[in-house]
Amino acid sequence: MNWEDFKEMLVAELVSMTGGIAAGTILAFYTDKLALIPGLFILMPGFLAMRGSISASLAARISAALHLHKKSAERERSYFGKQNVHASFLLAIVTSFILGIVAYAGTRLIFNVDSPAILLISVIAAFISNVLMIPITFATTVWLFKKGYDPDNIMGPYITTIGDVVSILSLLTAIYII
């Protein structure tokens, strides 16, 4: 067994898992609200996966641009940055709408329960998580780069950890709004 790999994987995994458990703990506090929304457990895994993928890709693109000097750390509001933010925002809204349709269809066809609210919950939650996650991802990547770290080595586990908590909070907020 490779001990270096073992140590690196274990530390990253324990950090990432603590975020997952924090997200689960938030869920446990609001079981009464979750029970009211059929289809939420169909939506949730896809929503978490979507949030993680979009934020990780955004961090990777910003990091690559910083490394290639396409964009200086001082000019984080550049055209390139804005385009990336727009793209990440749109990706989340479009994908969450489709996930909402999948969750609605799954609930309707398999469990014979009509739950149109799940569509709105998905899109509203995506909007809220966008407002929180995109600036966090952007600012953290640029900050790490400015401090001399390689964002590629840090952003993966960090984004998974923060992303889970933000996604669950966004879903719960959307349920409250609806």
Binding site: I42, M44, P45, G46, L48, A87, T95, G106, I110
Partner: peptide, 20 residues
């Protein structure tokens, strides 16, 4: 990104049917 993102998210959500 859109195709692979939608596909992977839908696959994850199909797994969620079992949890539902």
């Amino acid at each position: 990104s859109i195709k692979i993102l939608i596909l992977s998210s839908i696959i994850s959500s199909i797994g969620g049917i079992s949890i539902e």
